[in-house]
Design a protein around this nucleic acid. Structure first.
Lengths: 143, 143
DNA sequence: ATGCAAATGAGAATGATTATCGTTCGTGTC
DNA sequence: GACACGAACGATAATCATTCTCATTTGCAT
């Protein structure tokens, strides 16, 4: 088990509880960068921790509101979270294997700003997801 | 009640049944361009038609597969459909009032193609949603 | 007009997420 | 370091959108 980091929680205005530390540790030191509530729940269970699924959902939502995590609504109905490292990026998702890659394109970003401005919108957020097949090169990632 | 158009269904390989004609009519001649299954169900109910919610879901999915409608997964968990008029476009959604505007930006489209190609992906689909406030100009549209 | 497969409607079932509630834990105070 | 109190937890029930099941009805070719 890696060392835990209560400072991150405190600075986010959250009490430093065991389930919260476990979840945060999973995102900071775990294998997967993108995880659903169910993923997190299973991983904690597998490592012998007795956490409730409801708590996982609560904690993920709190972390999102605190800015520690970012939530993505990919196709398939379930929310996926990743660590918020400040650097905004969008996602390209393989529909065969579920593999996710990240990208950032400043041209796209600035076009979006212009589009919103032209229409009198103040942007809160945006999501760009490209769905496709990565078959050619690296699709042994099974879903 | 407007005249119905069985040709559209036939040419899509679908039997021309009453519920299907009603749903298609709603999208072609109704007030709202973007509708969820629940919206469609309620509107048909309100106009005195006895359709089942399950049928609405089935028909919307069939229409999507037939290319008559396009499905969007905005934030909020429910799928929204609109008539497929061949012209691809993305959406900017007001988070205060739910108002939706459409846009198309060829620069963004071509950047997306390039990004996917660079990573060895074959694009199936993509979704770009900008979420913001349209407060300044036209936010009397209530949710 | 007749028949049969396809489509429908009502309601049960499912999957993800949220709410409820009695119990436990974290933290400031003595 | 023990106490107290409210916040957080875990189990489970409830909710919401969507899909499935199945008996009944309907579209359409004969």
């Amino acid at each position: 088990m890696n060392e835990l980091e209560p400072e991150h929680l405190k600075s986010a205005g959250l009490k430093s509880t065991l389930p919260r530390l476990k979840v945060l540790d999973l995102f900071k030191n775990g294998q997967e960068r993108h995880m659903s509530a169910e993923n997190v729940y299973q991983l904690l269970r597998d490592s012998g921790d007795n956490v409730g699924l409801a708590t996982v959902y609560r904690v993920l939502t709190q972390f999102e509101q605190a800015g520690l995590l970012v939530r993505h609504n990919f196709e398939g109905g379930k929310s996926v979270f990743e660590l918020n490292e400040g650097t905004h990026h969008d996602h390209i998702v393989c529909m065969q294997c579920g593999h996710v890659e990240e990208f950032y394109d400043s041209a796209i970003e600035s076009r979006q700003k212009k589009i919103a401005a032209d229409r009198g919108f103040t942007i809160h957020d945006h999501s760009l997801h490209i769905y496709g097949d990565c078959t050619k090169t690296k699709c042994p990632h099974r879903r």
